[in-house]
């Protein structure tokens, strides 16, 4: 299977790789939201760290990803899109937009779903830490 140019670009030079500390470092930091989704046995795990200011704006985002090229590209793109947005704006990002931007084939749609899930999970983590209401976790598959 050939990959789209954009997937290859993100794979070779992923944007915003990293974290804001080890899992124990960020666990209790109220300015950091953590989202870890997927499972090793399924072949993909995405970890998203977001740094959110008091006004609810995502100042910075970092990802790590164990997964195929499309999963890496989806998480790289997700970090780029949420940076500078408010948490509510970020929650509005749909996996279908990622599919379109990266020209993912049908068999790779789950990678985009995972990226969307990681955004929601990270934002919910930040909201819980800051006493905000959390929308019910649900999956848009």
């Amino acid at each position: 299977m050939a990959y789209s140019e954009k997937v290859v670009e993100h794979f070779q030079k992923p944007l915003n790789v990293g974290s804001f500390g080890s899992s124990s470092d960020v666990k209790d930091r109220s300015d950091i939201g953590v989202g870890i989704v997927g499972a090793p046995e399924c072949g993909d795990v995405m970890q998203l760290h977001i740094k959110v200011d008091d006004a609810g704006k995502i100042e910075d985002a970092k990802f790590k990803c164990f997964g195929c090229g499309s999963a890496i590209a989806s998480s790289s793109l997700a970090t780029e899109w949420i940076k500078g947005r408010t948490v509510d704006e970020a929650l509005a990002i749909k996996n279908t937009e990622i599919v379109e931007e990266l020209a993912l084939p049908p068999v790779k749609i789950h990678c985009s779903v995972l990226a969307e899930d990681s955004i929601r999970t990270a934002i919910n983590d930040w909201k819980k830490k800051n006493g905000h209401d959390v929308e019910d976790d649900h999956h848009h598959h």
Binding site: P14, V17, S19, S22, S23, S24, I36, P40, V45, M46, Q47, F63, K64, C65, F66, I72
Partner: peptide, 10 residues
């Protein structure tokens, strides 16, 4: 860029 590698190192 592997979160699993980080966890293993921790």
């Amino acid at each position: 860029m592997s979160p699993l590698f980080d966890l293993w190192k921790e």
